[in-house]
Amino acid sequence: MTSTTERPVAHREPSWWDRQGDLIMRRPFNEWTFTHMNWLMPTERVARGTTSLPFPVEPEPLDLTYRFEDRDHTLAELHRRTFTTAFVVVHRGVIVHEAYPGAFAGPRSRMQLFSLSKSVTSILVGIALDAGLIGSEKDRITDYRPDFLGTAYEENTIAELLDMTTGVGDLETWEVPNSGIKQFEQTIMGGGNLADVVRAATRTAPAGDRFNYSTFDTQVLGWVLEAATGQSLATYASEQLWSRLGCDRDAYYWLTRGRPRTAIGGGSLNATARDMARIGVLMANDGVVNGEQIVPQDWVRRSRGNDRPQLAVGALGPSGYSHYGYANQWWTLGTECFNAFTGLGVHGQYLYVDPDAEVVIVKCSAWPTQDDERRDAETVAALRRVADHLACTR
């Protein structure tokens, strides 16, 4: 019982410490922070292999225009209008265009990739399934993480995590101070147990009914992967992926400040733009690199789309833009785009894969806001135009 003599607790205004995430992501600082996250957070290395497989380079000027909002624009205008920091275009395994407009970016700069990390987590899950470390995508989360018994995730399957149809959590809204994703961010930066934040999420829809974009879902997916493999996300990514791609540099995941420290499977991978292009080439080539099947072909094909109506292009609802569908932690674009699909990250990170045109494009950016539907639509229009141009001229 509360004593009548007790004073009410005064409301505490957020301090700069509470707002670290906002400060890190604000322009113009984010051009620096997005290439120096290892100066700001604890990290774990994703080691490259002993053998590098350098990209062949045959530069092209790409003097083309793309159409957006009834006007033609050049790629230079795209970079200016959408705050591009790195731009790498690969066609048939060859770098044909490369630019680094960012003040601190270059071929060896490791970029903060945000939710492009989700697509990499999906690749790793596909590898673990093929190896038998994960029994089935129909397995429940609690088969691997019994600490989620009694939470809203208790009955969910790995497949529902992969397609973000768990029905757990609200709309992911960065602008709302006490939203789930803001609590997630503040716990990462300020300390505390991240699993407690995720376990507190509530059910908002029946499992499988609707798409709801959720970093929580991918975080749980990463934890399932770690439990199944007995390795950290960084170690498994190094052994099964990074060391086999011929990467130029080690990558890294930054980790939570609080203990137990954990990587953010949905958002803390940092790597060079060229090395992310290698991931795209892997997906464009049905999971094969240098004659070796690294990712199962059916897993790659699953990432290009499926026949589930709630995941079709234009059907995602308030959690996705109308030009996207979703599958397997990737955003799909439909058959009119050569079956192209893309990984996305906030502030304008793209890994665009067009397997029919044999084109992969990495675009890193430093948008002033996490999301921007207009900048996204313009970027997609430009990337499609580049892929169409290369498919028709080379």
Rank of each mutant, 00 (worst) to 15 (best):
residue 91 H to W: 14
residue 24 I to G: 06
residue 94 V to S: 02
residue 19 R to N: 14
residue 159 A to T: 10
residue 251 A to H: 04
residue 107 P to R: 09
residue 59 P to F: 05
residue 153 Y to I: 02
residue 322 S to A: 15
residue 315 A to Y: 05
residue 3 S to C: 12
residue 60 E to G: 13
residue 111 M to E: 14
residue 364 C to S: 15
residue 183 Q to W: 06
residue 33 T to R: 07
residue 41 M to V: 09
residue 342 T to Y: 00
residue 213 Y to I: 05
residue 299 W to L: 04
residue 345 G to S: 05
residue 333 L to E: 02
residue 112 Q to G: 08
residue 338 F to M: 11
residue 28 P to E: 04
residue 359 V to S: 10
residue 123 I to H: 07
residue 280 G to S: 05
residue 245 L to A: 01
residue 22 D to V: 11
residue 100 Y to Q: 06
residue 125 V to R: 00
residue 374 R to N: 12
residue 312 A to L: 03
residue 150 G to S: 07
residue 290 N to C: 11
residue 237 A to Q: 14
residue 275 D to N: 03
residue 263 A to C: 06
residue 71 R to D: 00
residue 283 M to A: 11
residue 308 R to V: 14
residue 365 S to D: 01
residue 165 T to W: 07
residue 280 G to K: 05
residue 89 V to N: 03
residue 394 R to H: 15
residue 54 P to D: 09
residue 228 A to V: 01
residue 37 M to P: 02
residue 261 R to D: 01
residue 199 R to H: 14
residue 311 L to D: 04
residue 68 F to I: 00
residue 66 Y to C: 00
residue 262 T to L: 12
residue 375 R to W: 00
residue 257 R to H: 10
residue 393 T to Q: 15
residue 117 S to I: 01
residue 299 W to V: 04
residue 172 E to P: 02
residue 386 V to M: 05
residue 51 T to A: 14
residue 24 I to P: 06
residue 207 A to V: 07
residue 382 A to I: 01
residue 113 L to V: 04
residue 93 G to M: 08
residue 73 H to C: 00
residue 206 P to F: 05
residue 332 T to M: 10
residue 335 T to M: 13
residue 11 H to D: 12
residue 67 R to S: 12
residue 186 Q to L: 08
residue 356 D to P: 07
residue 143 D to T: 08
